[in-house]
Design a protein around this nucleic acid. Structure first.
Lengths: 149, 149
DNA sequence: TTTAATGCAAAAGATTTGCAACATG
DNA sequence: CATGTTGCAAATCTTTTGCATTAAA
């Protein structure tokens, strides 16, 4: 299920709104970097995002990609994901969703499930702090890795 | 709720069993490194584990800590955790449990909840691969970070 | 015009590796 | 004893930073 053009546009508009609200400049680079994450469904890491953006924008530099990704993270426009020895992966899906992660190769995909969205967390958590979101991380082996074993 | 001495001993015994089964040598270093993770409840990263082990074993080297931690991970004796810009954190709790993570400082704690243990995952996941475990990641701000803001 | 963002190159950090010496089973 | 493991130091890989230049609002 690829991300619809509509959804990508929605994300771009939201990005625009947030930037205006916080007085962040919408530079050519930031727009392209955010678009790349917004339209990716494979949760790329910084290096992958850099390579993809570079195709359309050959002068972009890797450090700008890093700076921009963490800025987007601070702004709450992307979330981060990790697994095992893998590097940080980025996800622009802000809707309630959950993750499948392959423990072997790091393959990661979103999935949606309204039952899981209604999870009730125990009160013990109040001892730790304030919970903002909760999602399920389903870990296992992806199809490709199952075959390899 | 600190980890009981009993539980730590149980983990050490399990470590011993796994090593014997797989023909892995139980060196002084590996034992101390695993013990350190087994008794920690704050999910330390490699550097922290190194520093703690070093107190008891001044000659241990950082690269042995890395090698050992990933070995333990391969053996299924520890799981890894991450958050935001943080480095990889290690957890020797093999029982079904869930995590609270502070998005701001990386503070991480386990919590248990039998309701959450019974989570039923949707069939969509079969398209991705085989799920081995599923846990809830509750993200938010820890008490210390709440005060700072 | 003012302020913030970029690209470059260099620095800093984190993790991994080759290899001789050493310890475990 | 044979083999796997360690420590060291160096290499590698990843991420961050300082600063002059450039671009957005």
């Amino acid at each position: 299920m690829p991300i619809t053009t509509q959804e990508i546009e929605r994300r771009m508009t939201h990005f625009e709104t947030v930037c205006r609200d916080k007085g962040i400049k919408r530079t050519h680079q930031r727009i392209e970097i955010f678009r790349e994450v917004a339209q990716a469904e494979d949760h790329p890491d910084a290096e992958q995002i850099f390579q993809r953006v570079q195709k359309r924008m050959p002068t972009v530099s890797l450090d700008t990609v890093y700076r921009t990704l963490w800025l987007l993270h601070e702004l709450g426009l992307v979330i981060t994901l990790h697994s095992g020895r893998e590097r940080t992966h980025f996800d622009a899906n802000l809707e309630k969703h959950h993750h499948f992660v392959c423990e072997h190769c790091g393959f990661t995909r979103d999935f949606h499930c309204s039952d899981l969205d209604r999870i009730r967390l125990p009160d013990v958590l109040k001892n730790f702090g304030k919970v903002k979101t909760a999602q399920v991380e389903a870990r296992g082996l992806c199809k490709a890795c199952l075959l390899k074993k």
